[in-house]
Design a protein around this nucleic acid. Structure first.
Ligand code: FES
Ligand code: FES
Lengths: 144, 144
DNA sequence: TATATTTAAGATATAGGAGTCTTAAATCTT
DNA sequence: AAGATTTAAGACTCCTATATCTTAAATATA
């Protein structure tokens, strides 16, 4: 798969926050319930995003998580790299070490093309942009 | 990652066979040695391709594996699907069930575009095409 | 026929990702 | 101050991909 399951959870959760009506903090329990993700597991995932400076959090009643910066300025590429690391954008499609133009594998040039399209898509797509589609066009963030 | 490690091995092994000088059967031990893959593991992987009708095999001295059809007629998509299954070309980027135009997630339309480019690349790329690059342009199939 | 070579098949082990559980810390409400 | 709510952190379990090991079956050669 292109993105890990953990990364799927992270993206859906951040999109949920971005699509939520204006609230200071959104409790993780609510996100987990709405998206059908294990609460403890999601807590751990969002902790990473908090540590990365993408989210900020607040403990106690009325606490939860929120974006550290406006959702319009956070690309999904940031989320993907925070969770899955940069491998997707760097590694050889055949699994060889050191993907590079200097020592290409036979599929390298074609793969690099598609990969950079993908990277551009991820870099140019903000959480807000996608959240608006959820909010206005009813696109889904959960099964069913 | 896009392709599993098992799939990487399968692709590199089949490319090795396709790039090998004209021989009836190539022993798995030789492939494993040349590509730095565990012999027993590679055996198991190539067994799947044999069962799928992509390779044929022959036991005993001078035995090994060979293509069931000309390498020019085998796309790397076939290898990928035989090993990793069709998930890459079918599943939602956000991990939701039933990726479809009818019930899209917010990134669906962009993902489908890139995914179909990828599928076209894989479907249009034969093992022979890539093997020729190894043979004639010295592109690598193994580390270093 | 005996031996060596090679794939087939299945059991077993290892590692990492995914998910659960428990306890602690911070904050609010009463 | 006490209790309820919520995130933080770490230990632990579970599952799957990856890898290894062992034995069997087929085939060639001598
Ligand atoms: S070297 Fe294989 S994709 Fe770049
Ligand atoms: S529904 Fe998510 S990519 Fe198609």
């Amino acid at each position: 798969m292109v993105l890990s399951k953990t990364c799927n959870h992270a993206l859906r959760a951040t999109l949920y926050i971005a699509a939520a009506p204006d609230r200071t903090f959104v409790p993780i329990g609510e996100i987990a319930d709405q998206l059908g993700i294990s609460f403890h597991f999601l807590t751990k995932i969002l902790q990473i995003l908090t540590q990365e400076g993408i989210l900020r959090s607040f403990k106690g009643p009325n606490g939860g998580v929120a974006f550290a910066r406006p959702a319009a300025e956070i690309s999904i590429l940031e989320i993907i790299i925070a969770i899955d690391g940069p491998a997707l954008m760097e590694k050889c499609l055949l699994g060889l070490a050191h993907c590079s133009d200097e020592h290409p594998c036979p599929i390298h040039s074609q793969w690099v093309r598609i990969r950079s399209r993908l990277q551009n898509l991820f870099a140019d797509t903000s959480l807000k942009k996608l959240a608006d589609r959820v909010h206005h066009q009813g696109y889904r963030l959960a099964d069913r």
